[in-house]
Amino acid sequence: MKIIQGIKKTKESFVFKDSAQLKEPLVLVFGNRYMLESDDIYAEVKDLFPDGHIVFGTASGEIIDDKVLNDSVVLTAIEFEKSTIMVKRSNVKDHDNNEINLGESLMTEFPKENLRHLFLISEGSTVNGSALINGIEKVKDKNVKLSGGLCGDDDRFERTLASYNENPKEGEIVAIGFYGETLEITSANFGGWTAFGPERIVTKSKGNVLFELDGKPALDLYKTYLGEKAKELPKSALLYPLSVKSTEESEPLVRTILNIDHEDNAMILAGDVPEGARVQLMMSSVDDIVHGAYRAAEYAMRGRKKNPDLALLISCIGRKLVMDQRTEEEIEEVKSVIGEQAFISGFYSYGEMAPFNNQNECKLHNQTMTLTLFSE
Results as ranks from 00 to 15, higher is better:
residue 148 G to I: 07
residue 11 K to T: 08
residue 317 I to R: 05
residue 325 Q to G: 07
residue 59 A to H: 06
residue 366 N to E: 08
residue 213 L to W: 09
residue 324 D to R: 14
residue 113 E to S: 15
residue 296 A to H: 03
residue 359 Q to D: 14
residue 251 E to R: 02
residue 235 K to V: 12
residue 123 E to G: 05
residue 327 T to N: 10
residue 74 V to T: 13
residue 356 F to W: 14
residue 303 G to S: 10
residue 110 F to L: 08
residue 74 V to W: 00
residue 19 S to A: 13
residue 220 D to Y: 04
residue 48 L to P: 03
residue 266 A to M: 03
residue 293 A to C: 07
residue 263 E to K: 14
residue 373 L to V: 11
residue 320 K to M: 11
residue 348 Y to C: 02
residue 272 D to E: 14
residue 277 A to V: 09
residue 299 Y to F: 15
residue 10 T to L: 12
residue 83 S to R: 08
residue 318 G to T: 06
residue 263 E to L: 09
residue 374 F to M: 11
residue 42 Y to R: 10
residue 363 K to N: 05
residue 218 A to G: 12
residue 107 M to N: 08
residue 371 L to Y: 01
residue 177 G to S: 07
residue 126 T to V: 15
residue 210 L to N: 01
residue 16 F to Q: 06
residue 371 L to D: 03
residue 134 N to E: 13
residue 221 L to S: 06
residue 329 E to D: 15
residue 4 I to E: 06
residue 184 E to K: 00
residue 312 L to R: 01
residue 158 E to A: 08
residue 307 N to L: 13
residue 61 G to D: 08
residue 238 L to V: 02
residue 244 V to S: 05
residue 17 K to C: 00
residue 335 K to C: 00
residue 48 L to V: 07
residue 285 S to M: 09
residue 114 N to K: 07
residue 138 K to E: 12
residue 69 L to P: 01
residue 106 L to S: 02
residue 25 P to V: 02
residue 347 F to K: 00
residue 83 S to M: 10
residue 270 A to H: 06
residue 35 M to Y: 04
residue 277 A to W: 05
residue 258 L to A: 05
residue 105 S to V: 08
residue 150 L to M: 15
residue 93 K to P: 04
residue 200 R to Q: 13
residue 160 T to K: 01
residue 264 D to N: 14
residue 364 L to Y: 01
residue 356 F to H: 13
residue 267 M to E: 09
residue 198 P to T: 11
residue 38 S to A: 12
residue 169 K to V: 11
residue 346 G to E: 12
residue 120 L to Y: 10
residue 306 K to Q: 15
residue 164 Y to I: 04
residue 141 D to L: 10
residue 82 K to S: 13
residue 294 Y to N: 11
residue 103 G to D: 03
residue 279 V to W: 04
residue 74 V to Q: 01
residue 313 L to H: 01
residue 179 Y to E: 11
residue 107 M to E: 11
residue 199 E to V: 09
residue 55 V to C: 04
residue 83 S to V: 05
residue 92 V to E: 12
residue 103 G to F: 04
residue 129 G to P: 07
residue 205 S to V: 06
residue 210 L to T: 02
residue 167 N to T: 08
residue 230 A to G: 12
residue 21 Q to V: 14
residue 174 V to L: 02
residue 360 N to C: 04
residue 256 T to R: 00
residue 285 S to V: 05
residue 286 V to R: 05
residue 220 D to S: 11
residue 55 V to W: 00
residue 41 I to L: 03
residue 85 I to V: 14
residue 231 K to M: 12
residue 239 L to E: 01
residue 206 K to S: 14
residue 286 V to P: 00
residue 179 Y to Q: 11
residue 205 S to N: 12
residue 262 H to D: 15
residue 217 P to Y: 06
residue 279 V to I: 10
residue 127 V to I: 15
residue 167 N to L: 07
